[in-house]
Amino acid sequence: MKILVFIKHVADTEARILISSDKKTLEIENKYTMSFFDEFAVEEALRIKEKLKEGQVVVCTFGNKKAIEALRTAVAMGADSAFLIDNTDMENDDPMVNAKVLSGFAKREGFDLILCGRQAIDDENACLGPMIAEFLDIPHVSTITKLEIIEIKKILVESEIEGGTALTEVQLPALLTVQKGLNEPRVPLITGVMKAMKTAVPVVDPSEFGIIKNELNNESRTYVLSYEPPSGRPPVKIVEGEAADIKVKNLIELLRNEARAI
């Protein structure tokens, strides 16, 4: 079984982010990691391969040169090969464009199963999985929490739906987005890290699978007008009182008459 895992290299939660003076671009401190949910996707791919005792796990990201770090993390965990699709010179970060590029790669590479994170933690779009599936004309299931291979071309997945869970039988090839709870991602062993450092990560240009970057820039359908920091709250009002119940009474008073929140 050939499994593709799409991972994204994102700014860490702690990274400082500055907005340029023209409000058009962001300067992000050099603290990056693999997007939180993508680790579950890599882990699941490895587990499937281990269970079937055959197969191939290929990880891929569409990003800049720095994103090789995230790919190496996946290789250190056990992925067989990694590809970076270079996005230098891309003007915009648009889900439509990204989905076209990644589905183009998937078509060229071939696959039985594609795994993605539920959503990236920087843009929280939760778009790419279902969009890539649409471009590849394959079924998808979002936010899966359990996966079982029942036949070579058939899997059973449990997924989160509005207000509950669903159990679905899916014919492969298919795309799944993964939710926390699916597994516990492994921490790479030192031997894995050593292997990852030696693994060559090919940099592919989208033109290799027939997508021309300049044309993609025209395909981009959205753009950022401006960035700004959130307005921030006034300093906290600490509610005083001699005893707990007085503090609570004073709080309710403020919530009712000042904040008009209850």
């Binding site: 939760a126 778009c127 999985g129 979002s142 359908r221």
Partner: peptide, 24 residues
């Protein structure tokens, strides 16, 4: 709405229609 249903449906619909999407 960007609920579980909306997040599952709209990206796929937008790709189908080849139209723009802004999510969340």
């Amino acid at each position: 709405v960007a609920t579980a249903t909306g997040k599952d449906l709209f990206p796929r619909l937008a790709a189908r229609l080849n139209t723009a999407i802004i999510a969340d």
